[in-house]
Design a protein around this nucleic acid. Structure first.
Lengths: 137, 137
DNA sequence: TTTAGAATTGGAATCATTCTAATTAAAAGC
DNA sequence: GCTTTTAATTAGAATGATTCCAATTCTAAA
């Protein structure tokens, strides 16, 4: 997808670029910091508006756990996540969720399923080995 | 588990009772409203402190999605959730997550797994059928 | 070039949650 | 049963993420 061909304002382009160039999982605040390097005048509100717009357009993904700030994701395909209970590190995971499991979830809930995600919580390698002592996001 | 035998303060007892008697998934605010009916003088801070304490003791469960307020759960056993993308309704789901899937998640992430949860997003029956037009928590 | 609608801006407002300092209650020691 | 120490509670202030609002600026079309 060429970023120019999307008919986006330059602010929205900048925000999209930041996320596309990121390692993934940036907070709105981090996006703002990056975006203003490209577009010094951009406002916080516009970053939020742009993120919402881009999410609704399906150009970026959004993910949020607990109370932590929402994170934005360049990855658009279905995937899963592992979250470290010690340091809050968040990584992507590509799992094959069996169809039978999705079907079971839909049947049991009565919901019309749009997506499923598996969340693993545990200790990341660094925290498990004691290398990482930080508690951070 | 007898609530009296836990050596809890009366505030913590009250908070625990509220959650045990709830249908599940109350916010801290809702817990506060209920708890003060039993214990009119209880403060907001104490409700939060108690919730944290009870969670750490493993007496209640905690769950949070997106930006919404954290919810507290009387259910302590592993279970899954379905969330309505239209009205934010949240229901419990009891699925059998295959061991192989948990193992795959742990291996791929390198995390020492503590828990896994499947989250289904979609339309709840009411929203799917158009009965429910609300957007609420 | 005028106009209408959309996007952007800065700042205020909101909401959940946490922190702080002071007070109170409970437990332990004598 | 009193004193000391420790933990819990309280009220309110502080924080942080997010949303809202009113005013301004763009953009695209007529």
């Amino acid at each position: 997808m060429d970023i120019k061909s999307l008919g986006l304002t330059k602010q929205r382009q900048a925000v999209l670029m930041v996320i596309r160039e990121s390692e993934g999982h940036m907070t709105a605040n981090e996006v703002f910091e990056e975006a203003r390097r490209e577009l010094p005048g951009i406002s916080f509100a516009t970053v939020y508006n742009s993120l919402r717009y881009l999410k609704n357009e399906g150009l970026i993904g959004e993910l949020g756990f607990g109370t932590d700030a929402i994170r934005y994701d360049r990855k658009l395909t279905r995937h899963d996540h592992a979250i470290c209970t010690k340091c809050d590190r968040l990584i992507d995971l590509d799992l094959k969720i069996p169809d039978a499991l999705v079907k079971e979830a839909a049947t049991n809930s009565g919901f019309a399923a749009e997506s499923v995600e598996l969340v693993l919580r545990g200790s990341c390698p660094d925290c498990a080995s004691g290398i990482n002592l930080n508690k951070g996001k």
